[in-house]
C-alpha cells in the first residue's frame, strides 16, 4: 500500500505545483468566508446580538459568532475533503487515465489515501486562511484545547474519507460531479448544525444530519475550541463519527469496486 500511496501523493503534488486548482481553492475559501460575513452582518445588524434562549440551550454556548464561524470553517474543510477523494476516479475517467490505473495491481486504498493526504495540504491552507479571516470577525482563539482540536480533525478526516468513497461511487454511476456533490453539500449545510443547531429543524429532516460525520465533528470541535473542554467530554460524538466511518468504509469500498467495472463496461465496451 505504501508505494501506491507515495506515488499518488507525489504525482498529485507535482500536478498541483504545475497547475494549482485556484478555482477550487478560492471557491472553498469564499464559501467559508460568506458564512462568516453572513453570520456577522445578521448578528450585528439584523437581530442586534439578541439571541433566543433556545439557541444557548441547543448550541451549548452564547458565543454565536464563534459558533457560526467554526461551523463555516469545518463545513469548508469537510466539503474540500469530500471533493478531493470522491472526484479522484471520475477525474481519471475524464482524463483517459482510468484504464491505465486499473490495469496495475496496485492497492486502491493506497491510491485514495495518497490522493487525500496530498489534498490535505491544500485543505490545511484553506483552513488557516478561513481561521484567520474568522478571527477578525469574532472567532475566539483563547480557550482552545489544541490536542482536542487535532484529535477531532483526525477522526473527522477518516470518517469523511469513508463517506467520500460512497459519494465517489455515485459520481461514477451517474458520471456526474456537479449535481451529485452539490446536492450533498447543500444538504450538509442545512442539517449539520453549520449556522444554527440542527435541533431547530423538524424531525423529518434531522435524521439526515445523524448520518453525516460533519454533524458530530462540528459539535465536537466547538466544544474543544470555544469552550476548551477536554476531549473526554466529546467522546460520544467521536464514537459516532468513528462508527459512521466504519459503516461508510466497507460500503464505499464495495461500491467503488463495482463502479470501476461498471464504468468500463458502460462507457468503453
Amino acid at each position: 500500500m505504501w508505494l501506491p500511496f507515495s506515488a499518488t501523493f507525489q504525482r498529485n503534488y507535482l500536478v498541483m505545483k504545475r497547475a494549482f486548482p485556484w478555482s477550487f481553492f478560492l471557491g472553498h475559501i469564499l464559501s467559508g468566508f460568506y458564512i462568516i460575513i453572513f453570520a456577522y452582518l445578521s448578528y450585528f445588524f439584523v437581530f442586534k446580538k439578541d439571541l433566543s434562549s433556545s439557541f444557548s440551550t441547543y448550541a451549548g454556548t452564547n458565543d454565536y459568532l464563534s459558533y457560526v464561524i467554526l461551523g463555516g470553517l469545518l463545513y469548508s474543510f469537510s466539503v474540500s475533503l469530500l471533493m478531493i477523494a470522491s472526484r479522484a476516479l471520475i477525474t481519471e475517467l475524464r482524463e483517459g487515465t482510468l484504464e491505465s490505473l486499473l490495469l496495475t495491481p496496485s492497492s486502491r486504498k493506497g491510491y485514495f489515501l495518497g490522493y487525500v493526504a496530498q489534498g490535505l495540504m491544500r485543505v490545511c491552507v484553506e483552513f488557516a486562511v478561513i481561521t484567520s479571516a474568522g478571527y477578525f470577525f469574532g472567532l475566539h482563539l483563547h480557550h482552545i484545547n489544541w490536542p482536542g482540536v487535532l484529535s477531532v480533525l483526525v477522526i473527522l478526516v477518516a470518517a469523511t474519507f469513508s463517506q467520500a468513497l460512497v459519494l465517489g461511487s455515485f459520481m461514477l454511476y451517474f458520471r456526474d460531479t456537479y449535481i451529485t456533490q452539490n446536492t450533498l453539500f447543500v444538504m450538509m449545510g442545512l442539517v449539520c448544525s453549520i449556522t444554527f443547531p440542527a435541533s431547530f429543524l423538524p424531525d423529518g429532516l434531522r435524521w439526515i444530519g445523524n448520518i453525516m460525520p460533519l454533524t458530530y465533528g462540528v459539535d465536537a470541535l466547538r466544544m474543544v475550541w470555544i469552550e476548551g473542554k477536554p476531549l473526554v467530554e466529546t467522546i460520544q460524538l467521536l464514537w459516532k463519527m468513528i462508527i459512521l466511518g466504519l459503516v461508510y468504509f466497507p460500503i464505499g469500498s464495495f461500491l467503488i469496486k463495482r463502479m470501476e467495472k461498471y464504468v468500463l463496461e458502460k462507457h468503453f465496451g
Partner: peptide, 20 residues
C-alpha cells in the same frame, strides 16, 4: 490517453512503475 499530460515522461513512468 493513458498518460498524465501535466507530468513529464520520466514522472509518468515513475508513477506507473511504483504502481507496479
Amino acid at each position: 490517453r493513458m498518460l498524465y499530460w501535466r507530468l513529464t515522461g520520466a514522472e509518468n513512468l515513475r508513477y506507473f512503475g511504483k504502481l507496479y
